[in-house]
């Protein structure tokens, strides 16, 4: 693949992208992913197990990271993707939670793969710990 984007130089900032998550999105994701955990759909159950409300699937947020990486890299092959889920993304009954995904281009490893160091936040709070992607770009 060509490297059309000069932004993929080590140290370059990746333009932050924002994504909204609604309760309806979580219902669709539960069906598409096969994760029926009610804490992602049912406020009463979420509160009963001590959560602050309905929370997004961690994998929903990580999927948004995947979308951001695809956008920045012209859909380059992802060789590694992962993160810790360090804070819940609470999705309100009305409106949406807004996730911001930004980052910096890291170094190219010995295999020529490019590391992306990411920051994933909601209202300025970090929701993913050490989110990292390794891409063939």
């Amino acid at each position: 693949m060509d490297h059309p984007m000069t932004t993929l130089q080590p140290g370059a900032a990746l333009e932050p992208l924002t994504f909204d998550i609604t309760r309806a999105d979580l219902v669709a994701y539960a069906a598409a992913s096969g994760d029926p955990n009610p804490i992602h759909q049912d406020e009463e159950i979420a509160l009963a197990v001590g959560l602050p409300g309905v929370i997004a699937h961690g994998m929903y947020t990580l999927a948004l990271v995947g979308r951001a990486v695809a956008a920045w890299t012209a859909e380059a092959e992802v060789v590694e993707l992962g993160a810790k889920f360090v804070a819940p993304v609470v999705v309100p009954a009305e409106g949406a939670a807004r996730v911001t995904v930004g980052g910096t281009v890291g170094e190219r490893n010995d295999d020529g793969l490019l590391a992306l160091a990411l920051q994933v936040t909601v209202d300025g709070t970090k929701v993913l710990g050490a989110p990292k992607a390794l891409v063939r770009a």
Partner: peptide, 28 residues
Amino acid sequence: SVAAFAASVGGRGDGPVPPTYPIVVSFA
């Protein structure tokens, strides 16, 4: 199944398989 998964996270359904798609089987 790929299109439904991609669309549920707001992406286009006709692109490459999303990198988090294998959660479908790992979650099983």
